[in-house]
Simulated assay, not measured.
Amino acid sequence: MNISAKPSIAFLGTGSMSGAILSGLLENAEAFGAVSATTRSAASRDALPSGTAESVALADEPGANQRLAAASDVVVLGVKPAQIGDLASEISESLRPGTLVISVAAGITIEALESCLPESVAVVRSMPNTPSHVGLGVTGIAAGSAATDEHVELARSIFEAVGDVLVVEEDQIDPLSAISGSGPAYVYLFAEAWTQVALDLGFTAEQAAVMVQGTFKGASELMVRSDDEPSELRRKVTSPKGTTEQLIKVLQDAELEPLFARAADAAIKRAKELAAE
């Protein structure tokens, strides 16, 4: 692995997730070398955060992906899953031996990605989530067949710029995606439902937002700071024969745990379908 102490990183495609990682890296620029990026259009290029060493619109330079890939120690494939194979094949001959290629695409297996790339490069598959936008992400990473411990640690350092990182086996990536990758949507769904309940109870939209968003934020922060398990924190709020106990009973009667398990299974199934498409 011939990667410098401050590795250069190219983001080929800057969608929502890869764009969040790019922003996080630029806020921790002292740990990395030049950070470059390609986008489809001049408009999306101009929207990139300041600090990007070089940003290129493919509309202006169609060969920019190959050029930046050849000049970088780390290449992040930031396009949609359906475009990953074509992008990997496009840059395959440009990559230097030892280059670390990171995928952030849901459902695309390491084997599928490695089949498009030379054996001399290392692959790490990742699954970040959207709180990476505010530096509070959770990312799972799994090493490919040629990835060394040094490659994995480098990938970890990149994603730690935007939150917490779990190193897992690849067969855990899809389940991880169902929990933390899709997880923010579950939280927003609950917030959406409680907001509507507040509105139905006569509160204004502004009041509902303060109650629901403030409660979610406060409860999450308390959970992070506390040594107690979530179940214990719930018990501390739930006084015997009190109002919360009645509310919790209604929710538990709905058998939420098997419902969540079915939801996770549906997400994992879809990830496998994406891999086969």
Rank of each mutant, 00 (worst) to 15 (best):
G19M: 10
D174Y: 06
G183T: 14
H133W: 14
R234C: 07
T14R: 05
A59P: 08
T130S: 12
E255W: 03
E27H: 12
Y186N: 08
E90D: 14
S145N: 11
P81S: 04
A254Q: 07
L58M: 14
A267G: 09
G85M: 13
L136A: 10
G242M: 07
G85A: 15
E119C: 04
E221Y: 12
T204L: 06
I268C: 09
H151R: 02
K217G: 12
Q246A: 15
E257V: 15
I91W: 05
P230D: 01
D200C: 01
R125Y: 03
E192V: 07
E150S: 14
P258D: 10
A267N: 04
L58F: 10
F203E: 05
S177C: 15
E93P: 00
A5S: 13
E30Y: 00
D73Y: 00
I268L: 07
H133Y: 15
F216G: 02
I3G: 05
R156G: 02
A193K: 12
P49E: 02
V74M: 02
N129M: 12
H133T: 14
E221H: 12
E30P: 01
A143Q: 05
L199T: 08
F32D: 01
D174W: 06
E150L: 11
K249M: 03
V121W: 10
A47E: 09
L189I: 13
V124W: 03
A146D: 03
I158A: 01
P258W: 12
R96E: 06
N28P: 00
P81L: 05
N65Q: 04
L176W: 05
A178L: 13
D171L: 09
G202W: 10
V79I: 10
R125L: 08
R234F: 03
I3E: 07
Q66Y: 04
E150V: 11
S55A: 15
K6H: 05
Y186I: 09
E192F: 10
T139Y: 01
A10K: 02
